[in-house]
Amino acid sequence: MSDNKSDPLTVKDLMVGLDEFPAISREALFIEAFHALERANEDFTTGKSKYRTLLVKDDNDRIVGKLSPMDLIQGLEPKYSNIIDPNRLKFKDTFYVITSMKHQKVLWDRPFENLCQTAQNARIKDFLKMPTEGHQVKKEDNIDEALHLFVVGRHDSLFVVERGKLVGLLLFSDVYEHISRKIKDTCEL
């Protein structure tokens, strides 16, 4: 972090390099991703790792995305991503859309019926969402730009990009910790 108070805080000051996170191939099966997420969570809770985020690599070992438990569960019903873009759906609309689809039996009539078949056959690449522009910041961006994306997109992390390549993650928890310290150090009486 910058010691000079006149220097604006940038993404690179708080970002975490990609090598800090466990990773899995996008060719991995759903069940392999499940076990990798379990290991990442266990390593995090036992203190072996600072992060539980699981990154996804392509065939050339480049990071192309990240996988969360919610992503994994959404992989059980990949048709949702063809119909719903949760980043563009207002909260008040979500319940109506999902309820109407369930009533019309368009999606997920019996989510657990094919659970084991999906877990053994689906590959991460079949349901992995690639990072969009609204989920990325540049390494040199002012932290204010990242904060805006966190608030608007309600992301838990943002991909950090340098010259078109993913180079790290900016975690909301780290940004919040920085804000919290600043409030305690400068705002309290």
Rank of each mutant, 00 (worst) to 15 (best):
M1A: 06
S2Y: 03
S6L: 09
P8M: 07
P8K: 14
L9M: 10
L9P: 00
L14T: 05
G17K: 05
D19P: 01
E20P: 00
E20T: 00
A23I: 00
I24W: 06
I24M: 05
A28P: 01
A33E: 09
A33D: 07
T45D: 07
T46F: 07
G47A: 08
D59Q: 06
R62Y: 15
R62T: 09
K66C: 11
M70D: 04
I73T: 06
G75A: 04
L76K: 10
E77F: 05
P78Y: 01
S81F: 10
I84S: 01
I84L: 13
I84M: 11
D85I: 04
R88Q: 15
L89T: 15
K90Y: 15
K90P: 03
D93L: 14
T94Y: 14
T94S: 13
Y96R: 13
K105A: 01
V106Y: 04
E113I: 03
N114A: 05
N114E: 05
Q117E: 06
Q117H: 10
N121L: 10
D126M: 03
T132S: 11
H135D: 04
D141E: 12
I143N: 09
D144Y: 12
A146F: 04
L149H: 05
L149C: 04
R154H: 13
R154D: 15
D156P: 08
V167I: 02
S173G: 09
D174L: 07
Y176V: 08
E177R: 12
E177P: 03
E177F: 08
I179R: 08
R181Y: 04
K184V: 00
D185C: 03
D185Y: 04
E188Y: 13
